[in-house]
Simulated scan of single mutants.
Amino acid sequence: MNVSLHYILENPLFEHAQLLAGADGCFRTVERVSVFDSPFGMDVIEQGIIAPGDFFVTGLLQFSADSDALFEVFRVLIAGQCSGVCLIAQQPVLINDRIRALCDQNHFPIVYLSDDIAYAQIMDTINRYIAIENLNLINQLRLDKICNDQTTASERIHLLESMNRQIGSQIMAVCFLGRLQSQLAGFEWNTLWLSRAGDIYIDEHQSRIILLSADDAHALRVHLDVTRNTIAQYFEQTVLGISRSYPRHWVAKAVQEARIALDMACAEGVSEQSYDPLSITQLLFPLRNSREAQDFCAAFTHALRAGTSPEGCRELWNTLQVFVHCTGDFKKSAQMLRQHENTVRYRINRVKTLLNMEHDPIRFYEAVGAAVHLHQILRRDPEFEDLLK
Results as ranks from 00 to 15, higher is better:
residue 4 S to N: 02
residue 5 L to Y: 03
residue 6 H to R: 14
residue 10 E to S: 06
residue 14 F to C: 08
residue 15 E to H: 01
residue 22 G to I: 00
residue 22 G to T: 06
residue 28 R to W: 12
residue 35 V to Q: 07
residue 35 V to T: 01
residue 35 V to D: 13
residue 43 D to W: 14
residue 47 Q to R: 13
residue 48 G to F: 15
residue 53 G to S: 11
residue 53 G to M: 11
residue 58 T to I: 06
residue 58 T to S: 15
residue 60 L to Y: 14
residue 64 S to K: 06
residue 77 L to R: 05
residue 86 C to E: 00
residue 87 L to R: 00
residue 88 I to Q: 07
residue 103 C to M: 00
residue 103 C to F: 08
residue 107 H to L: 05
residue 119 Y to S: 04
residue 124 D to N: 08
residue 128 R to T: 05
residue 138 I to H: 01
residue 141 L to H: 10
residue 142 R to V: 05
residue 143 L to P: 14
residue 149 D to G: 07
residue 151 T to C: 08
residue 152 T to S: 14
residue 153 A to T: 07
residue 166 Q to S: 15
residue 170 Q to N: 00
residue 173 A to M: 07
residue 173 A to W: 09
residue 176 F to W: 13
residue 178 G to I: 01
residue 180 L to A: 06
residue 182 S to A: 08
residue 187 F to E: 11
residue 192 L to H: 05
residue 197 A to D: 00
residue 201 Y to T: 14
residue 201 Y to K: 14
residue 211 L to F: 02
residue 213 S to Y: 03
residue 218 H to T: 14
residue 220 L to N: 12
residue 223 H to P: 15
residue 223 H to D: 05
residue 226 V to C: 15
residue 227 T to D: 12
residue 230 T to F: 06
residue 234 Y to P: 12
residue 235 F to C: 07
residue 238 T to R: 06
residue 244 R to G: 05
residue 244 R to I: 10
residue 251 V to Q: 10
residue 251 V to C: 02
residue 257 E to V: 13
residue 257 E to A: 12
residue 264 M to W: 04
residue 267 A to E: 01
residue 268 E to S: 05
residue 270 V to S: 02
residue 275 Y to N: 05
residue 277 P to Y: 10
residue 278 L to A: 15
residue 285 F to I: 05
residue 289 N to C: 14
residue 292 E to I: 01
residue 295 D to T: 10
residue 296 F to H: 07
residue 296 F to D: 02
residue 299 A to K: 14
residue 313 C to V: 07
residue 320 L to V: 09
residue 322 V to I: 11
residue 324 V to H: 03
residue 328 G to K: 11
residue 328 G to Y: 14
residue 328 G to S: 04
residue 332 K to H: 11
residue 341 E to Y: 04
residue 341 E to K: 13
residue 347 R to G: 01
residue 348 I to K: 03
residue 352 K to M: 11
residue 354 L to G: 08
residue 359 H to T: 03
residue 360 D to L: 07
residue 363 R to T: 09
residue 372 V to C: 12
residue 373 H to V: 07
residue 374 L to A: 15
residue 377 I to P: 09
residue 377 I to K: 10
residue 384 F to H: 03
residue 385 E to Y: 11
